[in-house]
Design a protein around this nucleic acid. Sequence first.
RNA 1: GCCCGGGUGGUGUAGCCCGGCCCAUCAUGCGGGCCUGUCGAGCCCGCGACCCGGGUUCAAAUCCCGGCCCGGGCGCCA
Length: 431
Amino acid sequence: MRKWTSEIGEEDVGREVTLYGWVHEVRDLGGLVFIVLRDREGFIQVTLPKKKVSQEVFQIAKRLKRESVIKVVGVVKREPKAPQGYEVIPVSIEVLNEAEVPLPLEVTEKVPAELDTRLDHRFLDLRKPRIQAIFRIRHQMLQSVRAFLCERGFIEVHTPKIVSTATEGGTELFPISYFEKEAFLNQSPQLYKQILMSAGFERVFEIGPIFRAEEHNTTRHLNEAISIDIEMSFTDHNGVMKVLENLIVRVYEDVLENCERYLEWLNLKLEVPSLPFERITYDEVLEIAKRRGEEIPWGEDIPTPALRILAEEIGDVHYFIVDWPTECKPFYAMPYEDKPEVCKSFDLMKGALELASGTQRIHKYNMLVESIRSKGLNPESFEFYLEAFRYGMPPHAGWGLGAERFLMSMLNLKNIREAVLFPRDRHRLLP
RNA sequence: GCCCGGGUGGUGUAGCCCGGCCCAUCAUGCGGGCCUGUCGAGCCCGCGACCCGGGUUCAAAUCCCGGCCCGGGCGCCA
């Protein structure tokens, strides 16, 4: 019966097991050959003392090429000298598929490879346990997000990724041809999840791709990313901020509990952030920046250098920047009644990295039309969206959290591309 | 998009500033050999590279121009 390397234990001693995997390394000492077999769960040492295995198997072992796929049937032996405490003495070794040489990069990581080289040969790069761990934790992150939101009555939905026109304005869209019409890849589920509030779902979430045609070239931007979005009726920005901070904590807790091995592969110590996250107002951010010699005119977005200063002051922790100027947030952001130049909005930060942003939304039709106009956009092109506001739209709020940014910040990845299997950036369309 | 830095064997690098001593360094890898407890195995022998095009010069990996590609920073954003 097939076992994963991680499953080999005391109960297997003296028994025959079947292992499938890749030849990670071969160490040939002449009369003694060690094969390090790797599968998705880890490693096991396959040991061939010349006099204790058949000559046929011994010769196969000596000729193995790294990264070939093999099937090993053998007897488990308790062995303190073996790295895992157990080793397998093979009865047979079958080469299921021989790998070519030389390899485009080293899975053993004896020699580092540049990110670009790694991404060109991503399938090989992903064989490294350290890299594999990122995606095992990503899986846990998404599982936790789903569980957390479902427990709170959120309904998972999918909104269209092919859209007819301008969503929020601002960012560049990828144009595509949709039969005889012009269409675009959606930059965000924003408008649709709001329509679903009018549809009466009250709480929805979506985990799906977003597309941005920005020609940015940084370590924290992608042209295709996964966005974790929620929208919630009968609440305000404070309500959804609470959901967000609790969600973040939940993911950290679950990863800590269920991904111990992968955190080890990454050599990472994770600390669950404490609640509640600090709330800092936009005005306070400007003051801190000013004190450090970085003057930002009120009403402008906070530039990256100022965010770095902020991170130095506050630390590499989670915090919210709240109460942004209405002018630097999208048209759907709800202004404060008594101070309309400021809106009920927030960004969730970790250090200098923006993880999420959200707002209470404008739910009144006339106010929304006016807001769209004030941003220089044409309400007519939003008719499909605006109609939902005329026949009973509840007050609502929501946010969007970048899945890759979240993962990147949690695992301390230096480049967001590390958090994606096959990243799409300004220049990369393959693989 | 703007600014800066860079492209040397399969991989990662040294050399470039100050042209010749470079038919190019080191490691890993690959091929071969020795070796019964390796675990970054060790030892011996061998293999393999200056991004492309043009220019300067007696002489270019090295200097200049153009192109392509890559990295970082910024803007913008999640």
